[in-house]
Measured scan of single mutants.
Amino acid sequence: NRRVIAMPSVRKWAREKGVDIRLVQGTGKNGRVLKEDIDAFLAG
């Protein structure tokens, strides 16, 4: 159960899209999950 680094707005975006943010690979600094990462995860 790893800790995910993400801005609150990104966490909210993931929740709205029904995405478990822990499954998303972050591409930002220090592995931070970005809004673009959520979109890419949804795109496959």
Rank of each mutant, 00 (worst) to 15 (best):
K12Y: 07
L34S: 07
P8R: 14
V19T: 03
G44I: 13
V33A: 02
I38Q: 01
E16M: 13
K29F: 11
V24P: 02
K12L: 08
K17A: 10
R15I: 14
R2K: 14
K35N: 04
T27N: 05
D37Y: 02
G44L: 14
L42N: 05
E16K: 13
P8T: 08
N30V: 04
L42W: 06
D20S: 05
F41D: 02
G26N: 02
R2F: 08
T27H: 06
G18S: 06
A40F: 10
R2L: 11
Q25H: 14
V10N: 03
G26H: 03
I38K: 00
R32K: 07
K12Q: 12
R2N: 11
K12H: 08
R15T: 13
A6Y: 04
R3C: 15
K12A: 12
T27A: 03
G44P: 08
R15G: 07
K29C: 12
G44V: 14
L42G: 04
Q25Y: 11
G28T: 01
V4W: 05
W13F: 15
R2I: 11
A6F: 03
L34E: 08
W13D: 15
P8Y: 07
A14Q: 02
V24E: 01
V24M: 04
D37S: 01
G31I: 01
L34V: 08
R2G: 10
A6E: 03
F41I: 07
R2A: 10
G44H: 14
G28N: 01
I21G: 00
R2V: 11
K17E: 05
V19P: 00
G18C: 15
I21K: 00
R15A: 15
N1S: 13
F41P: 01
K17N: 15
I38C: 00
P8F: 07
R32H: 07
G28A: 04
I5L: 11
E36R: 14
D20A: 05
A40T: 11
G44A: 14
A6D: 03
R11W: 14
G28P: 00
K12P: 00
V19C: 05
I5P: 05
K29I: 12
L23N: 09
D20N: 09
G18Q: 07
G31Q: 06
N30A: 10
E16G: 06
R32Q: 13
R3E: 10
V4N: 05
G26M: 01
R22E: 08
A6S: 06
I21D: 00
G18F: 05
F41G: 02
S9M: 07
I38P: 01
V24D: 00
V24N: 00
N30T: 04
L34G: 04
K35C: 15
N1C: 15
G31C: 07
S9V: 09
R2Q: 11
G44R: 14
G26D: 01
V10R: 01
V33F: 01
K12F: 06
A43F: 09
K35M: 11
V4T: 08
T27G: 04
G26S: 04
I38Y: 00
V19D: 00
E36H: 11
I38V: 12
A40R: 14
K17M: 15
N30E: 09
V33M: 03
G44Q: 14
M7K: 15
I38D: 00
M7H: 15
A14L: 04
I5F: 07
V10G: 02
N30R: 10
G26K: 02
D37L: 03
V19Y: 02
A40M: 12
R22V: 06
F41M: 06
A40N: 14
M7A: 15
E16W: 09
A6V: 06
E16P: 00
G28I: 01
R22P: 02
L23C: 15
R15Y: 14
G44M: 14
R2M: 10
K17W: 10
D20K: 04
R32L: 09
N1D: 12
V24I: 11
R2Y: 08
I5Y: 08
K17P: 01
R3T: 10
V33N: 00
R22Y: 09
D20M: 04
L23I: 10
E36P: 07
V24T: 02
D20G: 02
R11N: 04
G31Y: 04
V19S: 00
V19M: 03
T27R: 05
E16V: 11
R32V: 07
L42E: 06
T27D: 02
M7E: 15
D37N: 04
R11F: 12
Q25W: 11
D39H: 05
R3M: 10
K35H: 12
G18T: 03
E16R: 10
S9E: 12
P8V: 09
S9N: 12
N30C: 14
R3W: 07
K29W: 09
Q25V: 14
L23V: 10
M7L: 14
R15P: 05
E36V: 12
I5A: 06
L23S: 09
A43V: 12
E36Y: 08
R32Y: 06
L42A: 10
V19I: 11
L23E: 11
K29A: 13
W13I: 15
R22Q: 09
R22G: 08
M7N: 15
D37C: 00
L23F: 12
G28M: 01
A6R: 03
M7T: 15
W13G: 14
K17I: 10
P8N: 09
A40D: 12
E36L: 08
K35S: 05
A40H: 12
V33L: 04
K35L: 10
N1G: 13
V4H: 05
S9R: 08
L34F: 06
K35E: 05
G44D: 14
E16T: 11
I5E: 07
D20E: 05
A43P: 05
R11L: 12
S9C: 15
A14P: 09
R11H: 11
N1V: 13
E36G: 12
R11Y: 13
A43R: 13
R22D: 06
D39Y: 06
N30Q: 09
N30K: 09
K35F: 08
R3P: 11
E36I: 12
D20Q: 05
K17C: 15
S9K: 10
A14W: 04
A14Y: 03
R2W: 08
P8E: 11
A14K: 01
D20P: 06
L23P: 01
D39T: 08
S9W: 10
